[in-house]
């Protein structure tokens, strides 16, 4: 059943609505568990759109197997999605820096507070992101160190390739995930694929993981696939960053999720005007490339990729 979570009248005729679809079991009980699937906080991240569709499609195919509540929120930032804008259009604000919001605040804060209120009571929340338009990410879950005890076991059920536990960061206190985790709703942040695109293979991978987690929680009684064993990284030293040393056009020489040896060529930054190579980006360590630059134009400093050191995935 489609419900409106928040509604605000816009200046000219239109009403902004944040909507969710609630799937309930045929025999709903008070003890039913509830999972919330959230996406579209950043309007240019679309990987979650396919995931929401596919989760809904599979449930509708076998409604008799549903024994808990599944709430799907496909568009937290509908104006952003519709206008290919990462933030909230007109305000130029990152919606994921507004939580928990304020119901007495302006439109953006009000919407954020209504979303939080609606998500409260979930047993688990999955917030699906798709990197940005510049970088492609292997399906992974990012966890704030503060919440790792509760979240790592859940993350292992989601059929992703990598769990990245990062340091606590004050700025991230205004994210949806931090607000929900602080309220006792375990919230997993998935990053996968790339902005403005849909990678179906990653979508299917995560959907299989969501059904597996739902099965573990007693929400889904259908058969589920065994999940992948994710690589876990908790030490900042596990990850090496590759940044552009020159502004130019980056052309990769390797594939995403490729195992590299120290000194292997990752790609070139080229100069189309002069027909030259401005820099050869080489791997600084033995490792696996879990992030790679998708958008070719780079400035000095632009992120080209991230490598997980060999010792970590060999463990």
């Amino acid at each position: 059943m489609v419900k409106t979570v928040a509604s605000v009248g816009l200046p000219v005729d239109e009403v902004l609505e944040i909507r969710k679809n609630r799937y309930c079991p045929e025999n709903e009980t008070k003890d039913c568990k509830r999972i919330s699937i959230v996406t579209g906080i950043h309007g240019d991240e679309l990987e979650g759109q396919f995931v929401c569709y596919e989760v809904g499609r599979r449930m509708k195919e076998h409604p008799e197997l549903l024994t808990g509540i599944v709430d799907i929120y496909p568009a937290m930032n509908p104006l952003g999605i519709d206008s290919i804008t990462r933030g909230i259009p007109a305000f130029d604000l990152d919606m994921n820096r507004l939580f928990p919001g304020n119901k007495e605040g302006d439109m953006t804060e009000y919407v954020a507070s209504k979303i939080i209120a609606d998500l409260e009571g979930s047993d688990v929340c999955v917030d699906i992101h798709a990197s940005n338009i510049y970088l492609t990410e292997i399906p992974q879950i990012r966890i704030n160190k503060l919440h790792k005890e509760k979240l790592i076991p859940l993350a292992r059920e989601l059929n992703i390739d990598f769990i990245w536990v990062h340091e606590a960061n004050t700025v991230l206190e205004s994210t949806l995930a931090h607000s929900m985790n602080s309220r006792g709703v375990p919230t997993l942040v998935v990053e996968m694929g790339v902005g403005m695109r849909i990678t179906k293979t990653y979508g299917y991978q995560l959907v299989d993981g969501i059904f597996h987690l739902m099965h573990e929680m007693g929400i889904w009684q259908g058969e589920t696939q065994p999940v992948r064993k994710p690589i876990l990284s908790e030490d900042p030293e596990d990850v090496s960053f590759l940044n552009a040393t020159h502004g130019g056009i980056f052309v990769p020489s390797v594939k995403h999720w490729e195992v590299l040896k120290k000194g292997d060529l990752v790609g070139n930054i080229i100069d189309p005007l002069r027909g030259g190579i401005l820099d050869e980006i080489v791997s600084p360590v033995d490792g696996i490339l879990f992030t790679i630059r998708e958008y070719p134009v780079v400035d000095e400093g632009s992120l080209i990729g991230r490598l997980l050191r060999k010792e970590v995935y060999d463990r």
Partner: peptide, 8 residues
């Protein structure tokens, strides 16, 4: 010249 509801 245009404003949203709930705007300070």
């Amino acid at each position: 010249p245009l404003t949203y509801a709930s705007t300070a």
